[in-house]
């Protein structure tokens, strides 16, 4: 995707140009309002969904949301909104930490 701009070179260029990470690297943005509302942007897909657990695949790794009565209010290409009683959010970074 980044062609010749791989690894450190790309990061340096991004920092120099002051491009936000979510735009340049498509890293996920998590927004939480209280314990009942959770919005995630820049995700790849759902790996698992039950009323107690949602596993979401992102570019940098997986995000696990534990809770009770978890409900996906909407689910679009850009973002996903989860409502319910959220008790735990877990991050599982990939080997390289998600950094390209």
């Amino acid at each position: 995707m980044y062609g010749i701009f791989m690894g450190d070179t790309f990061q340096k260029l991004q920092k120099a140009a002051e491009i936000p990470s979510d735009v340049a690297q498509k890293v996920p943005i998590l927004t939480m309002t209280g314990f009942h509302e959770f919005i995630i942007e820049n995700y790849r897909g759902i790996l698992e969904y039950t009323s107690k657990l949602i596993r979401i695949q992102t570019k940098t790794g997986q995000i696990k949301i534990n809770g009770i009565d978890l409900n996906i209010e909407y689910y679009t290409n850009e973002e996903m909104k989860v409502t319910g009683i959220i008790s735990l959010i877990e991050f599982q970074a990939e080997k390289n930490g998600g950094i390209p």
């Binding site: 698992e48 969904y49 009323s51 689910y75 679009t76």
Partner: peptide
């Protein structure tokens, strides 16, 4: 493959809302 179903829907720009999981059924 319920998760795969909703992921494919997303890639096809099919809009879903009020997704609720009940006894292995959505």
């Amino acid at each position: 493959s319920l998760e795969r179903f909703i992921n494919l829907c997303r890639f096809q720009n099919i809009h879903l809302w009020n997704l609720l999981s009940k006894n292995n059924r959505y």
